[in-house]
Design a protein around this nucleic acid. Structure first.
Length: 268
DNA sequence: ATGGCTTACCAAGTAAGA
């Protein structure tokens, strides 16, 4: 039923992504999410610890393999928790050898799936150079996605893209029009990813819903003044298999939450 | 249009997040 021999259908997969805003502060939220949803792959962003500081044991106890990519200083950080075997293909986005920021992790799973976890620069800090870094990072991501699609790999990108793709993807007035999350150059680069042939999974299944994945700390959540900045992008063959996709707000309702909520999808 | 939160730095006040 679930994989196996020649001609067998590929197994059903659940993929998810969660910006945790410190995995050491949010380990219990992640554990409850894993227990409830049992994703096959969960990409984390803003883990904010070195790899050796990652609280791997409590996830391994739930049957997950853990691979963390961190950096000194308590910034950034990405990781993968996987219930299926995987091999790490990349621990950084190619194209800028001096880039020491822990923002990308790519794996190949047992079933031949290529999946990349993304923590795209915010672009509002660091002045002009901070914004230029965001644009360069997106150009590098476009180059990488093009190469993966040219190779006809079943390919998925999941993570915090720090982009509201359209005006439908943020509450009215939630951001000033000059913000780096809604800038025309940033949105153009996000569209360039889609034009390569990637599908925005959440919008594919919920084209007109008011869906957010981030709400500022404070009254923003109860007022539903949010942003849709966490995304799952699927190559054409994976998009054909897309059977469900959503935002899980349960971890955002729990005490001491991350400011983001997880996004997930199911592939038949 | 921001920091009114939150976090990591590490012990007081920054910097970053979005």
């Amino acid at each position: 039923m679930d994989g196996g021999g020649p001609g067998a259908p590929p197994p059903r997969l659940r993929l998810a992504s969660f910006n945790v805003n410190s995995v050491r502060q949010r380990a219990a939220h992640v554990r409850r999410f894993l227990e409830r949803q049992r994703p096959d792959l969960l990409f984390l962003q803003e883990t904010r610890c070195r790899a050796e500081e990652f609280p791997r044991l409590e996830f391994e106890a739930l049957g997950y393999r853990v691979h963390a990519v961190g950096q000194p200083g308590g910034r950034n950080g990405v990781a993968l928790l996987g219930r299926i075997p995987f091999e790490v293909v990349a621990e950084a986005l190619p194209g800028e050898p001096e880039d020491g920021q822990a923002r990308y992790l790519e794996v190949e799973t047992e079933g031949g799936l290529r999946a990349g976890g993304v923590y795209l620069p915010n672009g509002n800090s660091g002045g002009a150079e901070g914004f230029a870094y965001k644009l360069r990072w997106m150009d590098r991501l476009i180059d990488l996605a093009e190469a993966r699609l040219d190779a006809f790999l079943p390919f998925a990108l999941l993570g915090d893209f720090n982009v509201c793709p359209t005006g439908e993807d943020l509450a009215p007035g939630a951001l000033p029009p000059t913000d780096a999350l809604v800038s025309p150059e940033v949105r153009a680069r996000f569209r360039a990813l889609l034009h390569l042939g990637l599908t925005d999974a959440l919008r594919a299944l919920h084209p007109h819903d008011r869906l957010y994945t981030y709400w500022d700390y404070g009254p923003a959540f109860e007022e539903n003044r949010g942003l849709r900045i966490d995304h799952i992008l699927l190559s054409p063959d994976l998009a054909e298999r897309l059977s469900g996709c959503g935002v899980d707000i349960a971890p955002r309702v729990e005490p001491q939450p991350s400011d983001h909520a997880p996004v997930w999808c199911t592939l038949r």
